Amino acid sequence: MKNHQVLLAEDDFDFGSILKQYLEIHNFDVTWCKDGEEARDAFAKAYSDGNLFDICVLDVMMPKMDGFTLAEKVIEIDPEVPFIFLTARKMKEDRIQGLKLGADDYIVKPFEADILVLRLNNILKRSQRDRQIVTVANNKSTSVYAIGNYHFDAQNHTLTLGETVQSLTEKEALLIHFFYENKNQMLRREDILTKIWGNDDFFSGRSMDVFISRLRKYFKDDPAISIASTRGVGLTFKLLPA
């Protein structure tokens, strides 16, 4: 079985060296970059060569380019790649910024290396499960759905209204598909999280809130569509009949 490819961006030499060795012991192939610009270039080159990284581990505080900016550059190249932030700061603002960027996890230093390995494996399992769900959805006879005035292409990850085409990430497409399949039904938060994120922990819950905000913006031009929240209970994807 092929090892998972990890991009590690960490400017602390001693800490980065330890992480690289520990991950390699646990059967990850690691490309270690010492600053944000080096990591961006490594990711871009690998992508252009067709050697995709499976996951990125990004330190927040780095020279030349910080981890948040690096994540934005990485997402521009490959919006589906999962990533984790490492930081020595416990500031709420950092966690919020990471969530807005779509981070899959956020680990505060110091931490045990085996914690990172466990979280990487969990994220990669969820990522693999998501790809399997998309494959099943794409193999169905219908992959394009009329949702109000929109056309949702589950296979190509697009949402179209008139001449406007909104490209979707894989997770956005999964969430829309799940909502549409259960339209006008109250969905419990934990059920959505388990189905799409693979778990219902605090971090995934905050990430889901960011994705819900995005979907509300995507569907804002059709008053027949809304995503209603029942505080502390769940969400309802409301679609009025034409």
Rank of each mutant, 00 (worst) to 15 (best):
M1D: 02
K2Y: 01
L7E: 05
D12E: 15
F13K: 14
D14V: 14
F15W: 06
G16H: 08
S17Q: 08
Y22T: 02
Y22G: 00
H26T: 06
F28V: 01
D29K: 11
V30N: 02
V30D: 04
W32E: 02
D35S: 03
D35G: 05
G36S: 04
R40C: 06
A46H: 06
G50P: 02
G50M: 03
F53T: 00
F53D: 02
I55A: 00
C56E: 02
L58T: 03
M61G: 05
A71E: 02
I75P: 00
I75D: 00
E76I: 09
I77M: 00
E80D: 15
V81T: 05
P82H: 09
I84W: 04
I84Y: 02
L86P: 06
A88S: 15
M91I: 08
M91L: 15
K92Y: 10
E93Y: 12
D94P: 07
I96C: 05
G98I: 13
L99W: 07
K100H: 10
K100V: 05
L101E: 00
L101T: 00
I107M: 15
V108T: 15
F111A: 08
V117G: 01
V117P: 01
L118N: 05
R119M: 04
N121L: 12
N122T: 09
I123F: 11
Q128E: 12
R129I: 12
R129D: 11
R131S: 13
I133N: 02
V136T: 13
A137E: 11
N138C: 13
N138E: 10
N139Y: 11
S143D: 08
V144C: 04
Y145A: 01
Y145N: 01
A146S: 10
A146E: 06
A154Y: 04
A154G: 07
A154C: 09
N156E: 14
H157T: 03
H157I: 03
T158V: 10
T164M: 08
V165F: 03
V165T: 06
Q166M: 08
S167V: 09
L168I: 08
L168T: 04
T169K: 07
E172T: 07
I176F: 07
H177I: 05
K183W: 10
N184H: 12
Q185L: 15
M186H: 11
R188K: 15
D191W: 12
I192W: 06
G198C: 14
D200L: 08
F202K: 11
F203R: 04
F203K: 01
F203I: 15
S207G: 14
M208P: 08
M208C: 12
D209W: 09
V210F: 14
I212A: 10
R214K: 14
R214C: 08
L215K: 07
Y218P: 00
F219T: 00
K220Q: 05
D221F: 13
D221S: 11
P223M: 01
A224P: 01
A224W: 06
A228T: 12
G232E: 12
G232M: 15
G232N: 10
V233H: 15
L235D: 03
T236H: 02
L239C: 06
